[in-house]
Structures are given as structure tokens and as C-alpha cells.
Simulated scan of single mutants.
Amino acid sequence: MKLSRFILSHLDDILKEWEDFARSLSKPGVIVPEAELQDHARQMLKAIALDMETIESAQQKKEKSVGDVSKISGGESAASTHGSLRQLSGFTMPEVTAEFRAMRASVLRLWMDKSTRASKANTAEILRFNESIDQALQESAVRFSDERNRTRDTFLAILGHDLRSPLATMTMAGAFLVRPTIDQANAMQIGARISRSAAAMTTMVNDLLEYARTQLGGAIPIRPVLGDIVDICQSAVDEASAAHPECIFEVEKAGERIGDYDAPRLAQVFSNLLNNAAQYKGENHPVTISTFGEAEATIVQVKNFGPEIPRAFLAAIFDPLVQLAIMTDQKGPATTSMGLGLFIAREIVTSHGGTIEVESSVEAGTIFTVRLPRAAPLPTMT
């Protein structure tokens, strides 16, 4: 059987192997449905089979094999759309490349198992198949890179915008403070504004430094000591309440409370989760943080009712520079929009030897679950 016809008649078998491989690349703790794992693979395989059936001249074959890569566009095709969605779902470029390698290997292996003998025609079909799948890979890679560049540029624009506001406040405050007629009461108010602006900028700079550390191959350092997880959660609630006075926060606790924790780092994690929950909470619903102490682990859950996070975003919500446009219907003031908070939260939890997961539905709400071992991991140093 010709390879192109084999592809069309054995799509389900090929897609099953594709799904198994794609599932192995998915983020831990995130259940991705079959349709999203297969993505546009069915359409890509059909397009590859159609391309293989298309008659090409000798010149067209040469151009396809040695053509200028820069001329390949990320225009609308199943392969380019696949690249866009994979970038949105938090895949990396090596993972996307590996998917096409797996597709190539699966198709050829399944076909050769059915083939009775090698022939010159078979060799020609394999060459044609390789050209077609390379074309699809390049289209996907171009779109993936375009989306990544767009996200990076958006990130830089947001960073500039977020830094400009506190800088403007501090500039105006400085202009008022140099006036000879300013009284003590006004000076105290201006000083408070400068302090808040400096704190906002410090948070952003610290997030950037933590992100840079992880990108250079380092883990976020922790220094765990014996502590009470409920006290850490309460500290995070106090900080979030100050930032969101209109939001009701509820603390629930059960089981063991004492363990080895880096309290400031975990307070940073829970503050971030609580601030996000307050920003996107529904009307007349509190934000809850619950602790469940077990023999070997402590579980902390932050829950709110608000807009459902689309399933396509769940796999990438903890990745940097990906979650910039997940939700726009926020109810409270945003603390920062750089898209680094959840990424840093995951890295801190990972440094504790724990895990962080998220699930979201209209009925159950959005729940972030942090699971931490109660025994201290080996401390990491700066």
C-alpha cells in the first residue's frame, strides 16, 4: 500500500501513538483531554498525505528540498496552528520538535510493519514523506517562535507600563517635597506614597531576579525551620487583606500544623495565590485558604469562585510569559501583570520538595492546591 494511502487509512492508530507521546510531555498534575493532546495532528496528517499525492516537477522537488527556510511562513495551516497552541499550552520548542520526530517514526514503523518488501517506489515515498513532515515542522516552528516573540514583547511592554506608574508617583512626590512651603502632614502623606511605590517596584524587581535565577539554572533558595503553617497562611491573609480590603478572606484549618518551612518564601506563595483569587473572585463569594495537616505532608488550598480558567491555559498557567492574557475580568486591583507570580510560586514550592496544581470549573470554582512535605529538604543557599 502506498504510504500516503496508508496514512489516511490508519489515522486512528497513528494518532493513538501521537497522543501517548504528547501525554508524556504534558505538565505534571494537569489532565489534558484527548482532543487537546491530538491537537491538529489529524489535519496535519491529511495535509501531508495530500501533499504526497501531488505531482511535482523536478524543479519543484529541488526547491522544496533546498529552499530558503526564511521564506517559510507561519500562515494558517494545521501545522502552524499546532505550533501556536503548543506555545500557549506551555510546550517548549524541543518538545514540539520531538512531537514531529515521534510522528515521523510512528508512521514509518507502522507502515513498514505492513509493507511486504522494500522497493524503489517505497524509498521515493519515504523521501516525499520526510519532505512533507519537515515542511510541517518548519511551519509549526515559525508560528511557535512568532507567538513566543509576541509574548516576550508584551511582557516587556507590561513591565514598562507597571514600572512607569510608581516612578511617576515618586517623581511627583519628589517635586512636592522640595517645596519650601510644604507642611509636616503633607510630607507624611507623600512619604507614604513613596513607600508604597517603592514596595511595588521592589516586588517587580525581585520577581525579575528570581526569574533570572531560574533561567540561569539555579533553584530559588530556601531555609526551612520549624514553623506553623497556619501562622504562615494568616500572615499571607493579612497582606492580601491590606491590598484587597473589599474582599472577605476565610481561613480553615485541620490536622497537624507544625513542619519544616521557609516561612517568608511560603508566605510569598500564598500571598500571590490569595491576591490572584481576590482579583478574579465572583461577586458575594469569599476567598478561602484551607490547610490540611497529614502525617507526612501538609496540603494548602486557595479557592475562589469567578471566571473559569479555560482548560487550554491550565497546562501553562505556572509558566513564565505565557499566562499574560488568561483572564481580563478581574474584580480587584492587579498587583502586577508581568506573569511571573505563579511561576515563582511553583519554583518555591518545588524547592520545598512539594507540588502545586490547579483545577477550575464553574461549579467547584478555581482551586490551587499546594502539597508540602512536613520534613525539611536539604537547604539551598544563594
Rank of each mutant, 00 (worst) to 15 (best):
S70Y: 06
T214S: 13
G83I: 04
T92D: 06
T288L: 15
E294R: 15
E36S: 13
V205S: 14
L372D: 10
N149Q: 13
G306E: 02
R193I: 08
M112K: 15
G74W: 03
G354Q: 11
A141E: 08
L209K: 14
S271Q: 12
C247I: 13
I326F: 13
A168P: 12
A173P: 01
L11H: 01
L266T: 02
E256S: 15
I182Y: 08
Q135T: 14
I317S: 09
D319K: 14
K16R: 15
K281Q: 14
E19G: 00
L3V: 08
R148V: 11
I229S: 09
H244C: 13
I248H: 15
T92I: 08
H285L: 01
S4I: 05
V300K: 04
L25A: 00
I222N: 02
M103R: 09
A175I: 11
I317H: 04
V178D: 07
Q323Y: 11
A376L: 10
I133V: 10
R104V: 01
V225P: 00
A316H: 07
L159P: 03
E17R: 12
R371C: 10
Q189E: 07
A41F: 08
A277E: 01
R346A: 12
E239Y: 11
A185S: 10
S119R: 00
M52P: 04
A79P: 07
V269W: 03
I229D: 08
S197R: 06
A22G: 06
S115V: 06
S115H: 05
